[in-house]
Amino acid sequence: MAIGDMMMMGSGLMGSVLAQAAPPAAMSDVHLAHYLFVACVMFVIGLIGFLTRRNLIIMFLCTDLMFQAAGVALIAFSRYHLNHTGETFTIVLITVAAAEAAMALALVVLLFRKKESLDAEEWTELKG
């Protein structure tokens, strides 16, 4: 739960920063491209983490990182187009992510109980 809250707080914080920092006028040097670059970096970090790590919890964190990267991109565009749909959608996204985190961590606990390990490679039951 604590982790989920943290993530929520983190993303909220980022959202507010973006909101302040992205007026259409070129008041500062921060452009849409910068936001998108941040989102992209977040996504790639998450992706690399997901692909390289074997610990289920870390992998889960990485997926959430990718999730939030998508949120950043959504808000950046929302701000860019002066359309609030993206921001609204990000709120939904955050909510869903919270619920999902709760579910996922519960599952991870169950899996851990089965094999006493958090290694993702232990689980290959879907092999064709």
């Binding site: 692909l51 074997r54 992998m59 993702a120 490679e121 689980w123 290959t124 039951e125 879907l126 092999k127 064709g128």
Partner: peptide, 10 residues
């Protein structure tokens, strides 16, 4: 095509 379905998440 079967080996593609290794069952490993990665």
């Amino acid at each position: 095509l079967r080996p593609a379905q290794s069952g490993e998440m990665h």
